[in-house]
Write a protein that binds this DNA or RNA. Structure first.
Lengths: 116, 116, 116, 116
DNA sequence: GTGGTCTAGACCACA
DNA sequence: GTGGTCTAGACCACA
């Protein structure tokens, strides 16, 4: 798996793993029901602790990105609507930004110029 | 000062203080060279630890939002370009968002629809 | 046999097999003394590990739902009172629920409204 | 705090802690914004590992039962609707039970007799 | 082999 | 002092 950790950046390792895998799923690099590397093997690959990978996988399962089968491993969920969820999140971020701009008297048009 | 802390929201208290004061300055609620409440008095007002307020003020000084005069207190910087700095930050956020959208194959136009 | 496993749902596979077979017996889909598929064939059918099916059968035997004849295979028990046992279990669950409701000050009548 | 662990029972310790605290909140034994014992002190009290308590608290926060303030501690959420949520859960359990009874040809009235 | 839980203990940010 | 993250390693259920 193409996961690169950045030990300098402040975000926790387990969170970096979560984000990376979510990204891989979002861009379609990992197909539904495709198995993820085992907790232990990924830990070795990333030179980190199995507990840390475990924490990342647990969070991914909680978010519905993957599912776990005891004794078998972890697999990508078939949830195709993940991109839709992401889109919604981005819309919310944009609207919050626009609201902030308004409060500061910054022109929306100017802010968005050339972004389309 | 009109600062309301939200203990439930996860962001550290010192960061909430920083954000609130930046906001107050940005919207013009605090004029250049206006004094801020002393560390101790604000700590009392917010029912928090003086260390926390101190940390917030240090961060604000680092960002150039306020300046400290030893023995006299803390004051709002006269930096009128603060809004400009903010605008630049917002542009960067927007460009990062657009880049992410591209990676996920989300149409920029669709994402920005109705925001102007 | 009409057994469908759900790998996404968290319950262990051997337990799903146990539950499914108990259900089949309870609803009368499997008659007393009827033979069950062999461990190996069911394992193949379910694309799972023979150990898993073995564990499920052992548990079913422990519960008295099936019986094993060495060299011949596994068979449904003639225990017609299985439904009675189930009914008793359900009563116990209901009474535990009612007890919990009492502790929380939830009205039993309200909780049971429209269920008869 | 009145928390008793049962090391014999199979449910994980962290989950027992979660359940106990939820119960205490549900029955009103702990008021909103009341502080919980610190991770370390509860670990000592229960003769368990701080990580285990930490895991329980993290889960409680995820469920909205408590909220965390870094450097200060954990506090009970003011969510009064917790009982409502619980009631809804119990209704769902009851309806599932009734459905199962129907499938087995068990009379609902008989099953519910004397429970009100 | 695979995931889940737990211990013992360290280090860090925050208050 | 308080919570959050992480390491190193053990033990267990499950497949």
């Amino acid at each position: 798996m193409l996961i690169q950790l950045d030990y300098r950046d402040g975000t926790p390792i387990y969170e970096q793993i979560v984000n990376r895998i979510k990204k891989l799923v979002l861009i379609g690099a990992m197909a539904p029901d495709e198995p993820l590397p085992s907790v232990r093997s990924l830990a070795v690959e990333l030179a980190t602790n199995p507990n840390t990978v475990q924490k990342a996988y647990a969070e991914l399962e909680r978010q519905g990105v993957i599912y776990t089968v005891k004794g078998r491993g972890n697999f990508i969920s078939g949830d195709k609507s993940l991109v839709e969820v992401k889109k919604k999140e981005m819309r919310e971020q944009l609207m919050a930004l626009m609201k902030e701009a308004d409060e500061l008297g910054i022109d929306r048009k100017e802010l968005l110029k050339g972004l389309e």
